[in-house]
């Protein structure tokens, strides 16, 4: 399954002025590849990722997956689609603070209503992320690296087609950076599409396809 973004344009209103952050962006994301999107701060990387993963409607253009055009759907359908097909790792802390690590990882399955075996799968993912001993800990007690691993485990919970990760290694030490990127690479190798937005130069070592954004345009 591939995700196609065609003629994507996006403008923001900033200080009363229209700011065109994305100009005619065309992109196809396919399973089995790790895509890296780089660019300087404010270049529109996160905006593009948000548009691709169904959380920000573009000012122009379409995003589609198979026969499904993302932003033509109603919110409830788009939300279901997003939960079923995308695993999203947002930048920074994204845990629900009133749930334990295990419950946070189980959350996507609970939202979809498919709770059977969710706890078992969540424990396996935590084990894979090497934080299984933290399953019953509250997220506030985790380090930045542990939180990021938890977010990766949560993104993998429903076995999505595409994983979107926004700066998944920011604020992480070398060991945690290596571990997170390695997991994402393994997911790409297993047939998923992985789309990573990062400042990190080391992402180049893991990426199959590299993009750069300059002045709103996507460069390969």
């Amino acid at each position: 399954m591939e995700l196609r973004a065609e003629h994507i344009c996006h403008t923001f209103l900033q200080g009363g002025q229209r700011l065109e952050v994305l100009k005619e962006v065309n992109l196809t994301i396919q399973g089995g590849y790790l895509y890296a999107l780089q660019g300087r701060s404010g270049s529109g990387k996160t905006t593009l990722m948000s548009i691709l993963c169904g959380i920000l409607a573009p000012s122009g253009g379409t995003v589609s997956m198979g026969d499904t055009v993302l932003y033509s759907m109603k919110d409830s359908a788009l939300s279901r689609f997003r939960g079923a097909h995308f695993g999203i790792i947002p930048q920074g802390q994204s845990a629900v603070s009133t749930l334990t690590v295990l419950e946070n990882v189980m959350l996507p399955a609970s939202i979809s209503g498919s709770c059977g075996g969710a706890a078992q799968r969540a424990r396996e993912l935590l084990d894979r992320m090497q934080i299984s001993d933290l399953a019953d800990v509250m997220p506030g007690e985790l380090s930045g690296g542990e939180q990021r691993r938890m977010a990766v485990a949560r993104a993998l919970m429903r076995d999505p087609d595409i994983i979107f990760a926004d700066e998944p290694t920011s604020d992480l030490d070398a060991g945690n950076t290596e571990a997170v990127l390695q997991i994402l690479k393994e997911e790409a190798k297993s047939g998923k599409a992985v789309f990573v937005v990062s400042h990190e130069d080391r992402i180049s070592e893991y990426a199959d396809v590299k993009y750069d954004i300059k002045e709103g345009r996507l460069l390969q």
Binding site: C53, S76, S79, R80, A84, A95
Partner: peptide
Amino acid sequence: KREFATLRILGVSRKQ
């Protein structure tokens, strides 16, 4: 707000 946004990216609709 961030907690609610996290729920939304995980597939929670506005209504939910």
